[in-house]
Computed example of a mutant assay.
Amino acid sequence: MEINGVPLHPLVVHAAVVFVPLAALSALVYALVPRWRWALRHPMLAVGIMAVGATQLASLTGESLKEDRGLFTPLVEKHEMWAGRMLFSMWVLVALMAVAWWVLPHVTALAGKADKEVRVKALVLPVTVLLPIAAIVTLVFVYMTGDAGAKAVWG
């Protein structure tokens, strides 16, 4: 896949490079700073959905670039390995973000400073613990993927 002779993968990757860390950081803040949940609730989920879409598209265009150009080197394979892990972690993160969006209580400053009722109390603690862990793992994977991709291109 190309646009005017430029492979689509390097263009799409920039969307993932922006949205994945934003999604992970917003998930961290959402889980760890309850008083900001009411403001972050919808933007966090929207950025998460955009990040998983950008990551999926980067994966598809990367596979296409590898096949079209015959890039079967060990460095490209390493980049592909980390990219697969990042894609999986991003899907896990966005799923946890959706559950957190639905489950975690949030103070709505516009409606009287009272927490919204918890929908499933048994999920509050697991989501509050798993969401930051998934966000940190995703940040590590996005770094490792980018580092391996840079080495594959420039190394």
Rank of each mutant, 00 (worst) to 15 (best):
1 M>W: 00
6 V>D: 01
7 P>S: 06
7 P>W: 00
12 V>F: 03
14 H>E: 10
14 H>Q: 11
15 A>E: 02
17 V>S: 12
19 F>D: 06
19 F>K: 03
21 P>I: 01
21 P>E: 05
22 L>W: 06
23 A>R: 00
25 L>E: 00
26 S>E: 07
28 L>S: 07
28 L>G: 06
30 Y>R: 02
30 Y>P: 09
41 R>F: 03
41 R>P: 03
43 P>G: 10
44 M>P: 05
44 M>E: 04
46 A>P: 03
46 A>D: 10
49 I>Y: 10
50 M>I: 15
53 G>S: 11
54 A>L: 09
56 Q>P: 06
57 L>H: 06
58 A>F: 08
58 A>E: 06
59 S>P: 04
60 L>H: 11
64 S>V: 01
64 S>M: 02
65 L>F: 00
70 G>V: 01
72 F>K: 03
73 T>Y: 05
73 T>W: 09
74 P>V: 11
75 L>F: 13
75 L>C: 10
78 K>Q: 14
78 K>T: 14
79 H>N: 04
79 H>M: 07
81 M>T: 15
82 W>P: 06
82 W>N: 07
82 W>I: 05
83 A>Q: 03
84 G>Y: 08
85 R>C: 09
85 R>L: 12
88 F>R: 11
88 F>P: 07
89 S>A: 14
90 M>R: 08
94 V>T: 15
98 A>T: 13
99 V>Q: 10
99 V>E: 12
103 V>H: 07
106 H>S: 13
106 H>P: 00
106 H>V: 11
108 T>E: 11
108 T>N: 14
110 L>C: 07
113 K>C: 13
113 K>A: 13
113 K>S: 14
114 A>H: 14
117 E>H: 12
118 V>K: 09
118 V>N: 13
120 V>Q: 10
123 L>H: 07
123 L>M: 13
125 L>Q: 14
131 L>C: 10
132 P>H: 08
132 P>I: 12
135 A>R: 00
136 I>Y: 02
139 L>A: 05
142 V>D: 00
143 Y>P: 03
148 A>G: 07
149 G>W: 02
150 A>H: 13
152 A>Q: 04
152 A>C: 09
152 A>N: 05
153 V>E: 13
154 W>M: 08
154 W>S: 09
155 G>N: 09
